[in-house]
Computed example of a mutant assay.
Amino acid sequence: MNTFIQAFVAYLEKEKKYASHTVVAYQNDVLFFERFLNEADASDELVEVTYPIIRTWIVHLVDQGISNLSINRKIASLKAFYKFLIKCKVIQTSPLVAHKALKTPKKIQVPFSEKEMQSVQDFEVIESDISAVRDRLIIEMLYTTGMRKSELIMLKNSDFDAEQKTIKVLGKRNKERILPVLPSTIYWIGLYRNHLKNCGVVIEADKQLILSNSLNKLSQSFVYRLINSYFSNVSEKVKKSPHVLRHSFATHLLDQGADLNSVKELLGHSSLAATQIYTHSSLSELKNVYKKAHPRNIK
């Protein structure tokens, strides 16, 4: 692997502290571009590339049928790579300084309805079954806090404060936030911990709060499959993922009158722009309020 790419990967891991799957994605995108340069017999090295060469690569990707969304992600990886080279004083300016992202269709994700959420919560849980209790706890945690799948997996026992009824979440770029925890979630945490103790597991502060069937750290794919499986029983929506639960958390709060800034803080967003996408999902509720309240609509 190119020395500069190796240094870039080490920078993402050690200084930026990105998740392993994120680092791999960045690395693969840069390697993909480097392979294009080699196969195209371009005389330019990675550090000497000009924007016209990158434009040729973009056209090549489009011709291959790769979506604009995927191309934008690859370009974002390249931007990060060249920004790193500037930081290291290998180059002075990025060849992508004037690049504008390709247009992509805006997709509005459809959250689970409150009825669908209630249907899942109405599922009977065999409280003597540690796996069933763990599954319910995962669903409760994702929906009642709005935390990301990766944040859930990284939770430690020390992050949960039963007395204060809060949980500490480590978000993107190692930004911490404290979230309130509902009594129902506290109940499932307590029940789950009792099961773990009965299995001989010592509840240590620096160990994961929620474990897999083999009492190891949860995997991303496990949490995704769990949510998809449970919600396939109650919803016909195309996408049934942990992120849709996060989306549902935000949408339902907004539907019930929560202000955008509060939802922003709960979600751990750095700007309101990221939170505003959830307001689209609240339009149906706004329409109902409008129809009921506007004088011209009162018959």
Score class of each variant (00 low, 15 high):
58 I>Y: 01
224 Y>K: 09
75 I>S: 02
84 F>V: 00
174 N>Q: 14
137 L>S: 01
26 Y>T: 03
98 A>R: 15
6 Q>H: 12
29 D>R: 04
77 S>A: 15
213 N>W: 04
65 G>K: 04
278 Y>H: 07
275 T>M: 12
223 V>L: 06
185 T>L: 13
96 L>T: 06
215 L>F: 15
129 D>Y: 11
22 T>P: 09
218 L>Y: 02
8 F>Q: 01
110 V>W: 01
298 I>F: 13
20 S>D: 12
259 D>K: 03
244 V>F: 04
27 Q>P: 05
210 I>T: 05
204 E>P: 00
260 L>Y: 02
6 Q>V: 04
291 K>C: 07
231 F>I: 11
150 S>V: 11
160 F>N: 09
211 L>A: 12
142 L>N: 08
128 S>Q: 13
235 S>K: 10
168 K>D: 01
186 I>G: 05
156 K>V: 00
267 L>I: 05
191 L>H: 08
180 P>A: 08
20 S>Q: 12
98 A>P: 00
240 K>Y: 03
203 I>K: 08
132 A>K: 15
248 S>P: 07
118 Q>F: 08
173 R>V: 02
144 T>S: 14
100 K>F: 12
298 I>R: 13
17 K>L: 11
24 V>W: 06
229 S>W: 14
155 L>R: 06
8 F>I: 02
31 L>G: 00
2 N>M: 05
164 Q>I: 00
46 L>Y: 00
27 Q>E: 15
239 K>R: 13
71 I>P: 03
203 I>W: 02
249 F>D: 05
193 R>L: 07
181 V>H: 09
177 R>A: 07
94 S>T: 08
140 E>T: 06
203 I>V: 11
207 K>G: 00
31 L>M: 07
182 L>S: 15
250 A>Y: 10
151 E>R: 07
184 S>N: 07
95 P>H: 08
236 E>R: 15
139 I>P: 03
171 G>R: 06
32 F>E: 14
201 V>N: 01
5 I>D: 00
266 L>A: 09
242 P>F: 11
124 E>K: 11
126 I>T: 13
101 A>W: 08
161 D>T: 04
263 V>Y: 05
138 I>F: 10
110 V>M: 13
47 V>R: 03
55 R>W: 00
143 Y>H: 01
100 K>H: 13
57 W>Q: 04
80 A>H: 07
229 S>M: 14
34 E>V: 00
251 T>P: 05
133 V>I: 13
11 Y>L: 11
285 E>V: 10
96 L>N: 03
60 H>I: 01
208 Q>V: 01
263 V>K: 01
119 S>A: 15
100 K>P: 02
51 Y>F: 15
167 I>A: 05
280 H>F: 10
294 H>P: 07
29 D>Q: 04
149 K>R: 15
19 A>G: 06
129 D>W: 04
93 T>S: 12
215 L>T: 08
208 Q>F: 07
217 K>M: 08
50 T>G: 08
74 K>Y: 06
297 N>S: 14
7 A>W: 01
53 I>M: 10
147 M>P: 03
43 S>A: 09
63 D>F: 00
274 A>E: 12
133 V>R: 04
26 Y>I: 10
164 Q>D: 12
102 L>H: 11
243 H>S: 04
116 E>P: 03
258 A>K: 00
11 Y>Q: 06
258 A>R: 05
30 V>S: 03
134 R>M: 02
145 T>M: 05
35 R>E: 14
